[in-house]
Nucleic acid binder design. Sequence first.
DNA 1: CATGAATGAGCTTTCATTCAT
DNA 2: CATGAATGAAAGCTCATTCAT
Lengths: 208, 208, 208, 208
Amino acid sequence: MTVKAATANTRDNILQAATKVFARYGYDGGSLEKISKSAKSVDRMIYYYFGSKEGLFIEVLENAYRRMNDAELKLKLNTSQPVEGLNEVIGFVLSYYRKHPEFITLLNTENLQRGKHIAKSERAREYSSPAIAIISELLKNGVAQGMFRKDVSARNVYLLIVATAYFYMSNRYTLSAFLGENLQTPQAIEAWQSFISSAVRRNVLLKL
Amino acid sequence: MTVKAATANTRDNILQAATKVFARYGYDGGSLEKISKSAKSVDRMIYYYFGSKEGLFIEVLENAYRRMNDAELKLKLNTSQPVEGLNEVIGFVLSYYRKHPEFITLLNTENLQRGKHIAKSERAREYSSPAIAIISELLKNGVAQGMFRKDVSARNVYLLIVATAYFYMSNRYTLSAFLGENLQTPQAIEAWQSFISSAVRRNVLLKL
Amino acid sequence: MTVKAATANTRDNILQAATKVFARYGYDGGSLEKISKSAKSVDRMIYYYFGSKEGLFIEVLENAYRRMNDAELKLKLNTSQPVEGLNEVIGFVLSYYRKHPEFITLLNTENLQRGKHIAKSERAREYSSPAIAIISELLKNGVAQGMFRKDVSARNVYLLIVATAYFYMSNRYTLSAFLGENLQTPQAIEAWQSFISSAVRRNVLLKL
Amino acid sequence: MTVKAATANTRDNILQAATKVFARYGYDGGSLEKISKSAKSVDRMIYYYFGSKEGLFIEVLENAYRRMNDAELKLKLNTSQPVEGLNEVIGFVLSYYRKHPEFITLLNTENLQRGKHIAKSERAREYSSPAIAIISELLKNGVAQGMFRKDVSARNVYLLIVATAYFYMSNRYTLSAFLGENLQTPQAIEAWQSFISSAVRRNVLLKL
DNA sequence: CATGAATGAGCTTTCATTCAT
DNA sequence: CATGAATGAAAGCTCATTCAT
């Protein structure tokens, strides 16, 4: 029992450390040494539990997706109020990205790798987005209430929200340099959220 | 003369090769050997011309920004037709990202490095975006023509366009896996462009 | 068991080779390749066992100090005959430097580095010199026998012996060129030892 | 004229910079880049003026010897007072080493190279030590005044002085660590000088 | 008289991984 | 079930030097 607990700990420690290190340094920049040191273990244990650097990264990715999925699943909202509902979804996404910056950088490095690891993961592809379903429901109700346009795709609205939220967080370093502004102040983020809300709402409303 | 030409060639070859390699493999994954081989030169020359891997990367970044800037400068459009103008800007951005995928991956790896290289570049921060000025002009004319809302920020419209275009290209690998669709078909891209156009237009119009 | 023996061997081989190479070429001139080749191993093993070139050098230094210390500890002499005792100490020091020229060159290169490595070694600073204690005993007895002056410092006598012996060996190349003599012949060395003996004896004697 | 002055400047700048760099980092540790940067010139100029790194180092060494020689030549003292004269010589040597630490470290690195460079210099070997001649005169007068022993070698007295002074300065870093004292305080240096004086005087006096 | 351009060889160090029990 | 020992290959970088005008 104690042994098993210890085992689980080492494995979990490595997984957590790897998430941090890969999120901070990317796949190539995240060396096994950085990970094992951060996990207070040794390189060898990574091979013992995960087989390879790639295996470890895949599990890190899967976990990140799973946590995002779980968070979306917990998102309970009153779908009878479509406009407010959309705002809540937007708030949720932006908030999630702020609280889980590792999700963004992990996806960044994975896209830099051309999705090579996620292609090897069966689990990661199983996560259907609960958020799209929620948006779908909101759009349906909005249409029923005569507020929303009929021909709006939930998938597109979802992508619009995610794109604007993700881009803002993901590219904050180059954007800050480019725009000469600090995008990370609470006010700046709030202003961006307000703008997204407006854009999304105007995109779905039948009449302004 | 011949020597100088040869010199310029070696330097340029390295710069071009580095752009490709860094865009393909990221900063950490882009080894000097890959670059020098691709440039048909040797590692040593990188240090001769650029001082360090970092120095080379900074110049690669600066070039990418400069080319984007130059392309925006060449964007001449009739600002008296605001709606069409916005569509042209959207088309330009999406098209530029499609034709210059290296721009996206370079920014991706730089954001993974937390903007540490661009912070060292004086030149890169000098590029003010001509596109924002163009959008500003379009919005002004749209307001004058009684078509657009008054309180719309050109910077936000620019970010909305860039975010949706960038995200779609940047995250196409993980998105494809996640959505179970191929986002790279001409039809898919065209559909996305059409959606962005609609979203942007609806965001600025006074009445739908 | 065999493995552990082999392990110890590789480590020891590197340590011995490093001692020779650093003593011969100094810290900067002593490349890891020279060391690993001499140890019939590879560069990588130096990092495995010693972490860095610096770590290896520190251990080489510590060993040199330890061996000197051990040799002094084995120096058993009849302290009831102070004059003869001092001569024996002088003979020991000169003889040790002749038999262990690496000790001198290692200290030379370390002083060239401004003692930066020894400053990082806790062990090296722990060696108190047994020779000073011996000289102290000899001086005490000499005073008791009415032969030596009272106010002579053992530390100074030790430094006088070490300085003259060390300098003669350490600077023999430039001195030979400068004086136009060969200082390394047995006769020359014996003459120098005889001179040191006289100088030390006259320094401590109450009356000549 | 201006060109020639500029030329002389570059050469001199390199020579001065090289003296500092070689004295600080030794022959192997003193890279041409460090030297040329310190001289605000470029590596190529070293080859232009000195032919090679070795040629530069030889000239640095020769200069160091020449300056020491010149300083000794300027040492004018009243040889009719032998004891005071010896003290002045001791004071001069210690003081010179304190003011010209580069002389010590240059000799250190050259001895580490086994005198390989000085062997190639014809000039360096031409410097006969004026100090030995002075000591010889002092000893002669001391004998004539019935104060000094007859059979004392000026060369040995010179070496005794130089050895104790040189060793103290040269090995101050390792000695400080070993003895657990700071040897570089003015008081410590003065105490050592006083000890050397006593040792030298007692070595030459007929009766104490 | 002076120098910009170029370079081959070597440097220390880090990489992900396998061996062996 | 877990781990200490060992490693080949490659990384980024610096070295003293020569080419060419």
